[in-house]
């Protein structure tokens, strides 16, 4: 897949220049976190303590990998449904988080927070977990090991194939993408978000 090469940590001017529908090949360090890790991070932040990694400029991948067989960096690792993390996301964006990788719709509060904080939401192909694992070059657990697949993994990725699905201007591909293909006009799609 072709795409614009982008490195982490994400710099502000690059994020501002990423637009909905653009393909990106992401390289560098990213962090996994899903339901249980978000809950713990939120509790940590509410107590006024530091999160397990400095969020500034970083990218969180909503994913919990399959266990790695011997000799490979990671097992299958596709995105999980992002919407379940919506309740925690605006707080993390305010702390400096710049990017998220997942699948599925975000609520209006998250879309607004992405815009307000100049961040980006990438879609990875849901279901392509073995393919995506091939782009992970190294991994280690950095926090919450007791959560098993829900621990926070630091991943080193190379040309991780992504699509910009919500950008810093507040555009949302999940909202605008289906329009031209829908023949059930006048119906609201995905109103329950």
């Amino acid at each position: 897949m072709k795409g614009r090469k982008v490195r982490t940590p994400l710099e502000e001017d690059i994020v501002k220049d990423l637009h909905v529908g653009e393909r990106v090949l992401l390289s560098g360090v990213i962090y996994t976190a899903r339901d249980a890790a978000h809950k713990r991070m939120a509790e940590t932040l509410k107590r006024g303590e530091n999160p397990p990694f400095d969020l500034r400029g970083q990218v969180i991948y909503y994913a919990g990998p399959a266990p790695a067989p011997p000799g490979v960096p990671i097992g299958s690792i596709g995105p999980t449904t992002s919407g379940r993390m919506d309740r925690y996301t605006p707080m993390l964006l305010e702390m400096g988080l710049k990017g998220m990788i997942g699948k599925g719709r975000r609520n209006p509060e998250v879309i607004a927070a992405i815009r307000a904080n100049g961040a980006v939401y990438f879609g990875a192909t849901g279901g392509a977990a073995a393919l995506l694992a091939k782009r992970v070059k190294a991994s280690r657990v950095i926090a919450y090991e007791d959560l098993g697949p829900e621990a926070i993994y630091e991943l080193l990725v190379e040309d991780f194939p992504l699509l910009v699905v919500a950008d810093s201007e507040g555009n949302d591909l999940y909202e605008i993408g289906p329009g031209q293909w829908s023949s059930s006009r006048g119906e609201r799609i995905g109103e329950d978000r």
């Binding site: 399959a66 097992g75 299958s76 690792i77 999980t80 192909t125 977990a129 699509l163 591909l173 993408g177």
Partner: peptide, 27 residues
């Protein structure tokens, strides 16, 4: 966009089968 997703999924089916990896991390 749809074609690109389907390309990914078809490749994924092959990789999973050849390397005996789960198709999806959510088993």
């Amino acid at each position: 966009y749809g074609q690109a997703v389907l390309d990914d999924l078809l490749q994924n089916v092959e990789i999973a089968r050849k390397e005996k990896m789960p198709l999806c991390q959510d088993c």
